[in-house]
């Protein structure tokens, strides 16, 4: 379980990194290069991949989302 969660968090951090890189390129390149749009393409690509992997993990029972619980 811990390994699956670690994988999810690492990919999420890569998504955040690409988002930050895009912000940096937007400020430094001022619309004159493709670096911003390319970073954003990475960020959405990784995000879509992450969600698909999570769906697969839930499907295979490798991770359990919060069940219906609570209220003692």
């Amino acid at each position: 379980m811990a390994l699956q969660k670690l994988l999810i968090v690492v990919v999420f951090l890569a998504v955040v990194y690409n988002l930050g890189a895009a912000l940096y390129y937007m400020m430094s390149d001022k619309g004159q290069s493709d670096r911003t749009v390319n970073s954003l393409t990475w960020r959405i690509g990784l995000s879509v991949g992450l969600i698909l992997v999570i769906c697969l993990m839930i499907w295979l029972g490798l991770i359990n989302p919060h069940g219906i619980v609570v209220g003692h």
Partner: peptide, 12 residues
């Protein structure tokens, strides 16, 4: 567009 990506990542 960047803001939209940001809001998307927050949701993620």
């Amino acid at each position: 567009a960047w803001y939209w990506h940001f809001v998307d990542v927050v949701w993620l």
